[in-house]
Design a protein around this nucleic acid. Sequence first.
DNA 1: GCCATGGCTAGTA
DNA 2: GCCATGGCTAGTA
Length: 107
Amino acid sequence: MKVKTSHTSITDQDVYILLSKIPPGKVSTYGDVAKALGHPKAARAIGRIIANNPNPISIPCHRVVKSNGEIGGFAYGEQSKREILEKEGIKFQNKIVENFEEQRLSF
DNA sequence: GCCATGGCTAGTA
DNA sequence: GCCATGGCTAGTA
């Protein structure tokens, strides 16, 4: 018989639903998403899940950046990620999101 | 055993 | 720059 475990895995759906709540002009971080799902240490796992994103069209995976405001990865290259974010109103100073803490969404 | 991360320490300037 | 973390995948038996 199976005993209840409290260390539930994060599902792809959990992540995608959360991502869909980030509005244009805002960003979140891998770690913040992890925390919002109750797994404060799972930042890297979140990165992996996002990398598998089956539907980059409707899921705004480009709005997730690193915890220090650096761009983070993107299937079509960091440059492209940056351009999309700039179109949405995010600015950068060298490699960092300008005013990072202000643009950072809290769930 | 990899990795679209993150937090913390050592060691240089 | 090191290493813990968590979900995944390739590759062996």
